[in-house]
Amino acid sequence: MYTRKNALHYHAMVLPGIILLLLFSVVPMGYAVIAFQNFKPGRGISGSEWIGLENFQYLMELPDSRLIFFNTIFLAVLKIIANLIVPLVFALLLNEVRVRFLRKSIQTIVYLPHFISWVLLATIFFDVFSLEGIVNQALGLFGIDPVLFYASNSWFPAIIVATDVWKEFGFNAIVYLAALTGINPALYEAASMDGASRFKQLWHVTLPGVKTTVILLATLALGNVMNANFDQIFNMYNPLVYQSADIIDTYVYRVGLNDLQYSLGTAVGLLKSVVSFILVVLSYVLASRFAGYRIF
């Protein structure tokens, strides 16, 4: 009861942000009711015809929608898995390095890509993977014929995932490194006394030490299953690989902004938001129930 008196101040601290969110996030959601309309811009929202779920029904019939939902989830899940494993391996390797200077230098370099925008990276990678690019040059050294990476529906998803991992693995390793530093050194000493080899130590001390972190990260990643990264794909894809790389967000963009199908585009976006929200709630519940963590 003593503490309650501060609540008013807390409200004051939160309110400016909340008001801005209301204005810029909630109000647009009001406009999103056009998903349930045959929206005619000339008549506005109030004058347009309400058609219930017709846009959503049409969506279900479109062969496109199965494809984009599949692509989104497929790419997102691959990224989630790769982004759990690669940073872990990297963190474990780095953890073995005892020379502080080396550690720091490596870290500085591998975090860097995280901070470069996809606009720039897309241009860089287009160059890197082009026919004359360095990847094909390298393949050429082994006598392998150049590959048209950006044109191939089998290569392109791999490139999407690989470049995403390339950009993020260093940064994602930070959480693991923090967990690794948190492991009690006494455990290593004890293991060492018992004559455990380094692999044994890794297996019996280090990995159990980061196990909860891995599980927790996996749970949190659930919220990203519908999120295959618009910025990356928008800047990297081309019509040849729509088949394998067109995701919900890019589709919504094209349908709404290029094709004048406002209602359909908004309907797809709305559907995605609902599914994402359910997934986040699910991950929140799972994390708090099984790992005892409260995310927020």
């Binding site: 909340i18 909630v26 647009p28 406009y31 056009i34 585009g265 938001s273 927020f296």
Partner: peptide, 19 residues
Amino acid sequence: WFLVFTMLFNGGVIPWFMT
């Protein structure tokens, strides 16, 4: 929860532009 909600939901490009 309001924050989380706004992080996940958005009206899409057209509503955003109109706002």
